[in-house]
Design a protein around this nucleic acid. Structure first.
Length: 234
DNA sequence: AATTCGGGGCC
DNA sequence: GGCCCAGAATT
């Protein structure tokens, strides 16, 4: 029994140090409080937004600024109010519709593939993320969004922004790819471990967009700079 | 695990 | 003009 437990721990060792866990928990609380006053507001975060909207908008958000999607949101979901409406769209019309947002060719393919899948399953996605592998336009990020928005699971919306915040605050990841770095995966999951998952996810995304920006982070006005490793190294 | 894809927005 | 953006698909 002891041998098995030991080997198990060695194989699946928790990559997070206890100190890192404490810092992430405290960071999450601070950022949620910060977002309560300084966070952004988008239509897909409102209670009125359907699960369809919350998931479909993730495709609109890919490699695109959230503000641009915010301007585009109302007309898009007025024209395509359901998976079925989106699945029945003519590809040419969808492409034309998406042009103001950019990446319209690729996005049209993604949205149509995703909508045709979802229309067949009545908008229900599998609970097991391994079954998301073959769904068009669903990578790790959208998979986590599905698990979070449809199945109420504690999954982080881990993208370049959440990664940047965590890495600056604690330490850089070791692997190049966000999806395969065990430490970053564990850290992002720990970040959303307590409290409201969506609030924590949105808080860190807003914080990354407004304060902890990629190029010129506003460290002097950062609410957590006294504990930030990046700020300490400046 | 690294490269490719790919277009508006912003500095 | 170069870099950034709520990544996915491909090799």
């Amino acid at each position: 029994m002891h041998c098995f437990r030991h080997r198990n721990l060695m194989t699946f060792a928790d990559p997070l140090l206890p100190a890192e866990k404490r810092q992430l928990t405290r960071l999450a609380g601070d950022l949620v409080r910060w977002a309560g006053t300084d966070g952004r507001h988008f239509p897909w975060r409102l209670p009125a937004a359907t699960t369809y909207e919350k998931i479909a908008v993730e495709v609109l958000l890919q490699r695109t600024t959230a503000n641009a999607v915010g301007r585009f949101y109302a007309e898009f979901f007025a024209r395509f109010p359901s998976w079925e409406a989106l699945a029945d769209a003519r590809p040419e019309e969808l492409e034309t519709f998406l042009k103001p947002l950019g990446l319209w060719r690729r996005r049209a393919v993604s949205l149509l593939g995703l909508a045709r899948y979802a229309a067949k399953t009545n908008g229900l996605f599998p609970t097991d993320p391994r079954l998301h592998r073959d769904i068009p336009a669903v990578g790790q990020y959208v998979s986590n969004a599905i698990l979070s928005f449809q199945h109420q699971q504690r999954t982080p919306l881990l993208d370049v922004n959440m990664a940047r915040v965590i890495e600056r605050f604690l330490r850089p990841r070791r692997l190049a790819d966000i999806r395969y770095d065990p430490w970053l995966q564990a850290a992002s999951h720990w970040f959303v471990r307590r409290g409201d998952v969506q609030s924590a996810n949105w808080a860190v995304l807003d914080f990354a967009a407004i304060i902890c920006k990629a190029r010129t982070p506003l460290c002097t006005s950062c609410p957590v700079n006294t504990r930030c490793a990046y700020f300490a190294s400046l």
